[in-house]
Design a protein around this nucleic acid. Structure first.
Lengths: 158, 158
DNA sequence: CTAATAACCTACTAAAACGCTCAGGTAATA
DNA sequence: TATTACCTGAGCGTTTTAGTAGGTTATTAG
């Protein structure tokens, strides 16, 4: 479980897709401009998100990216682990071959904590996060006059 | 809120101190050997932990490091933020000067999530973590014949 | 059909962070 | 006074970060 700016980019970009979930695909150029992230960098991040089946890209004019699953079914943990491929491996090999000394203790302690953090983030879905009062307020303020998407998050789109 | 190997080192080292809390100071050399971390690197990490008032060093023969507060009163979040000084600052300055566009949205979204993660890790103290059944079992297995510290975690030491 | 669009792919790069080593301090205790 | 152990800083190789550059495919609007 690694956590850095890279993860922030990925999560906020995914939230962007979630916000416009009912309004068709979003281009990376739009995300790039609105969030101030380099386009090519976004492409690299989305390549990983695509490989992990979180998004799908539609080519050509009118194309862009959209979530391949419902915002309810994508957790923050999934997004973060998708972009951080070389996940933390503890020094003692990884699984079984450490039994003596405290090195094994270190291993147990950290994997326990890491698992806990993962479970926590896995409980937060894109939809659940956007539905929170304070978050929803900001989104609504940004979309004055536009279609508010929040109510649409709860029904499946054909 | 950043999370990497560096944080793992700090947290596991602090847990080490917590385990031996009732048994006097622990030298960095011991931690270095038992956990397989470079001594000088440990010294650098502990310099930061000390600056944040989490540990105190005792010089001279028989010296070492010990927690400056009770394991109950030190959270995992504190340890991680102590060693990661250059904490994540969002691009839009940090606080107030972003009001237009979605950049502000990004800001709000991530700080909200980051705060949540912090609160979660802040709820886990060194003591509470060590008291868990599965963790405690491993510790006990390591300390066969030695003084088991777990019961001591609940009472203050003079 | 054609031209514009936007995903997709590969390689490269400057800067930062990471993990560590080395060399030398300074302070406290036996 | 000698040992122990904290403390500091400089430097170094590697990895990650964040971004650039330049291309190719696929799709669609005109």
């Amino acid at each position: 479980m690694r956590l850095s700016t890279k993860g922030r980019y990925a999560v906020t970009a995914m939230l962007d897709l979630a916000i416009h979930y009912a309004q068709g695909p979003v281009t990376l150029a739009e995300i790039s401009e609105s969030q101030g992230i380099s386009l090519s960098y976004l492409e690299q991040l989305f390549a990983r998100l695509r490989k992990h089946g979180l998004v799908e890209g539609l080519r050509g004019p009118g194309g862009g990216y959209r979530l391949s699953r419902h915002p309810q079914d994508i957790s923050v943990a999934e997004v973060i682990t998708a972009i951080g491929e070389g996940i933390d491996v503890t020094q003692c090999g990884g699984s079984e071959d450490c039994q003596e000394g405290e090195r094994c203790l270190t291993h147990v302690l950290w994997t326990r904590l890491g698992k806990e953090i993962y479970e926590f983030l896995n409980g937060i879905t894109l939809a659940s996060f956007l539905e929170r009062d304070d978050v929803n307020q900001v989104i609504r303020r940004q979309q004055q006059g536009l279609n508010v998407m929040a109510p649409n998050l709860n029904k499946t789109v054909a």
